[in-house]
Design a protein around this nucleic acid. Structure first.
Length: 569
RNA sequence: CGGGACGUGGCGCAGCUCGGUAGCGCACCUGCUUUGGGAGCAGGGGGUCGUGGGUUCAAAUCCCGCCGUCCCGACCA
């Protein structure tokens, strides 16, 4: 294409409200424009990248036997009621009514609709099936942010596997895992597969593909040796055992006037170091007051509590609720001899004695607490946040904490949706069994942003050839130099004939402007045609990634460019 | 939802404290010069100052409501 005919509105300044590098550069480079919060228009350049990413995803899905569908974006409420998610999804689902007053939703994911199609599978002989689509999803995110990274309307590749049993699901899951590795490899995204929480999707296991970036919103715990990686919501670690203060045998009340924090309680006479304290968090799980107990120096991980209890809605109790149920205010709370309230405790507290905790009376604590003897724990679970530096559960090395963009997520769903919608098949024994399902997602726009986030420098974007809006740009230094124009036009025609995605910068602009724009929009290779080199029968070839330039003869340039592009695709 | 900030041509900003008919840079148009890293000079076009109301002779500016956008937190396949 000829730049002079294209709509590529580059900006010298990024909008003031852009924060993330990908956001600034995608706007500055003329790839996207915001319509309103969480909704972006893809401009021609942005759509080209988006299409190329989708094309790679599509190719790899087809390679594992996936079949492409296109399902409606708007769904009747009934199908979401059948799965129980009409209520579960809460405010995150866009809901509307049609003229007849029928309730509708904009799809945020498509388990229900795909499963309804799977009702037509009636025999195990038709399995396995892998179905996918690339379709727009709508989610009423509480806080859209960072350009394309978190939006309310976005294209997603979502696929679904249907198998007759768990072993089949494991195979389909592995196929997807490998396809995802290939996809992220081709996208040049250094995605780390990590153990993850299944959240509201339900199911038995899930893996996220996480791209390290400080623009991300997820924390990953990773072992530097590479033998362990998990979302903080799932991560575990080995902790050195704590020697209990066994001299504190008897449950004893301790006056602690004005002491409200773990730290303060560690400093007073007869106080206790944080590792010998129990932190008591009062939470409301689906409307039920619950005490969550962790060690004094630990932090409660909300997602772990949700997962351990199967809760859909969780919030901290209000100060009023806390006083009503426990008789004291935060700072003096504990679970000792508490009855009639659900108590969930972190595994690390199991068997501990000689502990200190609040006495549920302002300004009083207990010491000598034995967890087994004094606290009626209803459920033990891993509830604590892992911190950087703790020991890897596999090898003991110090764990690191990495901020990441969640770029893909694959789930073993099991039979939750097939049972809810009655999607069953006859197995070899003639028995009716529910389909065993998996679901697998990659956000296309988020992948575009993640690539931008990880492939840029001070001058602009540096697209990998696989997704670049154009593979090469021919920059004509001076449109008034007829020889330059002729050589550039000839090269342009040759490269197009070779199937190269080439952009001819034929604008009547100064060379500096053209160089700066080419770098901003991140075209991986540039051929500069100008009188200087042309006097020697040469042009310049520049690699955007390293900035290296070389002189190449006019005869050799076509092969060189085509070779570089094709090998990098 | 809690906290904070901001809404003035396409983008970046000043003007607001102390009310008096809107300005700068970039971009855009015309001309001349320039021409290998975001040119110079001259001329020019473009703004219901987010919105509704109030105060006032007079409101971008003061007051109130609303809307929108961004950031932090909460939340979030």
């Amino acid at each position: 294409m000829r730049w002079s005919n294209l709509f590529i509105p580059t900006l010298r300044d990024a909008p003031a409200d852009a924060e993330a590098a990908s956001h600034k550069l995608l706007v500055r480079g003329g790839f996207i424009r915001q319509l309103h919060a969480g909704h972006y228009s893809l401009l021609p350049l942005g759509l080209k990248v988006h299409d190329k990413v989708a094309g790679i995803v599509r190719h790899e899905m087809n390679a594992i036997g996936g079949q492409e569908f296109l399902l409606p974006a708007m769904h009747p409420a009934s199908i979401w009621r059948e799965s129980g998610r009409w209520e579960v999804m809460g405010d995150e689902m866009f809901r509307l009514e049609d003229r007849k007053g029928a309730e509708l939703a904009l799809g945020m994911t498509h388990e229900e609709v795909f499963t309804s199609l799977a009702l037509e599978i009636s025999s195990y002989k038709a399995l396995p099936q892998i179905w996918y689509q690339i379709q727009w999803k709508f989610r009423d995110e509480p806080r859209p942010k960072s350009g394309l990274l978190r939006v309310r309307e976005f294209a997603m590749k979502d696929s679904y596997s249907f198998d007759v049993d768990r072993a089949g699901l494991d195979r389909s899951f592995d196929l997807h895992h490998h396809a995802y590795v290939r996809i992220f490899d081709r996208l040049a995204l250094p995605a780390i597969p990590v153990e993850a929480s299944s959240g509201a999707m339900g199911g038995s296991g899930s893996t996220e593909f996480m791209v390290p970036s400080n623009a991300g919103e997820d924390d990953v715990i990773r072992c530097p040796t590479g033998d362990y990686a998990a979302n903080l919501e799932r991560a575990t670690s080995m902790l050195p055992p704590i020697a209990d203060r066994t001299e504190l045998v008897d449950l004893t009340r301790l006056a602690t006037p004005g002491i409200r924090t773990i730290a303060a309680l560690g400093e007073i006479e007869h106080g206790a170091p944080a590792v010998h304290q129990i932190k008591t968090m009062v939470m409301v799980l689906d409307g039920e007051i619950t005490l969550a107990l962790v060690r004094g120096d630990h932090q409660l991980n909300i997602q772990k509590l949700l997962d351990a209890t199967g809760t859909t809605e969780l919030r901290p109790a209000t100060p009023e609720e806390t006083v009503e149920h426990l008789g004291a205010s935060p700072g003096s709370l504990g679970a000792v001899r508490v009855e009639g309230i659900r108590i969930i405790a972190d595994e690390i507290l199991r068997g501990r004695v000689g502990l200190t905790t609040g006495a549920n009376e302002d300004d009083w604590h207990y010491t000598g607490v034995s967890v087994e003897r004094d606290i009626a724990v209803d459920q033990w679970a891993d509830l604590r946040n892992v911190s950087a530096g703790e020991a890897c559960p596999n090898c003991g090395a110090g764990l690191e904490l990495v901020r990441c963009i969640e770029s893909g997520h694959i789930f073993k769903l099991g039979t939750k949706y097939s049972e809810a919608l009655g999607a069953t098949v006859l197995d070899p024994d003639g028995k009716n069994v529910p389909l065993v399902m998996g679901s697998y997602g990659i956000g296309i726009g988020r992948a575009v942003a993640a690539i931008a986030e990880t492939h840029h420098d001070d001058h602009g974007l540096i697209w990998p050839v696989s997704v670049a809006p154009y593979e090469v740009v021919i920059t004509i230094v001076s449109m008034k130099d007829d020889a330059s124009v002729a050589v550039a036009e000839s090269l342009y025609a040759d490269l197009r004939a070779r199937g190269i995605d080439v952009l001819l910068d034929d604008r009547r602009a100064r060379a500096g402007v053209k160089f700066a724009d080419a770098e901003l929009i991140g075209v991986p290779y540039r051929v500069t045609v100008g009188p200087k080199a042309l006097a020697d029968g040469e042009v310049e070839f520049t690699d955007r990634a390293d900035g290296e330039s070389s002189r190449v003869t006019c005869q050799a340039i076509t092969d060189l460019v085509a070779g570089a592009v094709v090998s990098a695709r």
